[in-house]
Each structure stands twice: as C-alpha cells, then as structure tokens.
C-alpha cells in the first residue's frame, strides 16, 4: 500500500507545484500528497487501537480490582526493558532518515538494520512473557482461565488481544523496514525521493506510541 502512496504518479494540477514540466496533469512525484496519505492511514490505525482502548476503559471501570490484580501478575522490569528497546528503535529509525537526508546511505542502512534488530528483540521478549503465562495455563480458551473470575478473564482476554495486535504491528513494521532497506540499496529510495522511508518511519513511531500507552495501562495499574 505504501508503494502506491509514495510512488504513485501525481498530476500537476496542483497549484503549488508549478515546477513541473510537460503536459498539464502529467504524473509526477508529490511527497506532500504521499505524506498526507500516510497521515490519513495512521488516523485509521489510531482509531483501530482507539477502539481497543475504549474496550479496555470499559472493562477497567467494570472490574477495577481484578484489573489491578491482573496487572500485578505482569513482569514490570521486563515490560520496562521492552519499552526502552522500542524507544531506542524509534530513535534509530529517525537516525536512518536523517542519515539518508544527508546522503549517508551506509549509515542509513546500518540504522535500518538496528531498528529491525530491536524489533526482533522486542518480539522475542514478548514471546517469553506470553510463554510464561501460557505455561501457567493462562491463555485464551484454556480451562485454567475459564475457571477464573470473570474480571480476571476479561483482563487476560484484553491483554492477549491488545498486546497481540501490537506485536502484529511490530512484525509488519519490521517487514516494511526490510522492504524500504531493499529499495534504499537499489537507490529507488534516495536523498531526493525519501518519502517512502519517511512514511514507514511515521508508521514505526505509531507502533512505538501505541506501546507507550499499553505499557502503563497493563503493567503499572496494579
């Protein structure tokens, strides 16, 4: 999708783009439009998570004590470490864009690699966290969970849903970064045409931002 957003032709009917040549309305490169498209797409992502946060708020107010209890069962240091990992990855992503802007392709590629690495670390830690819970028999559809109080069930159902959706976004984001890395390597993304990398950077910051909300809501309300 981002391919279309960045590489799609844009007509020069645009009043602000009078530096274009050729026929009226011949396709051209319009980073402003691409960025606008990306922001609109990010709105949809925000609303998708927004709906989940609304559900979280509804159940938190319905079962405050159970949610506090459930939160207490999560490992705060591990969660905090993961937060640092993701924040750092946001930094490396921003550095990758800055490097390419200066024309330093090598550094940019290194930073993209680092970002993907951090994404991997995040997912592995998350997998261990889930694994620990699953070992205790707490996972959706398990008999242990079904035997718990309804408030606890609601907590773990929300926990798996929201962190699961977030992890899915981390994985998709990492895939997109690998893809933009390939495009950077063969120079289809370059200092003059880097809106694709900027857009994927925006996406990555959103993934980070969502976690910034998830972490306190799940780990720190105990």
């Amino acid at each position: 999708m981002s391919d279309s957003l960045s590489a799609a032709p844009s007509a020069t009917g645009d009043a602000h783009a009078d530096d274009h040549h050729g026929h009226y309305g011949v396709p051209g490169y319009d980073p402003i439009a691409s960025r606008m498209g990306m922001w609109l797409f990010l709105f949809t992502e925000l609303l998708l998570f927004g709906a989940l946060f609304i559900a979280f708020a509804a159940y938190l107010s319905k079962y405050p004590t159970y949610f506090a209890e459930g939160s207490g069962s999560l490992n705060v240091p591990v969660g905090a470490f993961n937060t640092v990992v993701l924040l750092t990855s946001s930094l490396t992503m921003a550095l990758a864009i800055a490097a390419l802007q200066r024309g330093d392709k090598n550094l940019s590629i290194k930073m993209l690699n680092a970002t993907v690495l951090f994404a991997g670390v995040f997912c592995v830690i998350k997998a261990f966290e889930w694994g620990a819970k699953i070992e205790m028999g707490i996972y959706p559809g398990s008999a242990t969970l079904a035997a718990m109080d309804q408030g606890k069930q609601a907590f773990y159902n929300m926990y798996y849903t929201m962190t699961g959706f977030h992890a899915l976004h981390v994985i998709i984001g990492a895939g997109l970064i690998l893809w933009v890395k390939k495009r950077t390597l063969d120079d289809r993304v370059n200092p003059k045409r880097l809106v694709l990398m900027e857009n994927i950077g925006l996406y990555w910051h959103l993934v980070d931002l969502v976690w910034i909300f998830l972490f306190p809501l799940y780990y720190l309300i105990a």
Partner: peptide
C-alpha cells in the same frame, strides 16, 4: 486528470 493515487 486523475486521483492522487491512481494505483491505490
């Protein structure tokens, strides 16, 4: 002459 993102 077209929408902003024709392929999309």
């Amino acid at each position: 002459n077209d929408v902003q993102f024709p392929r999309l």
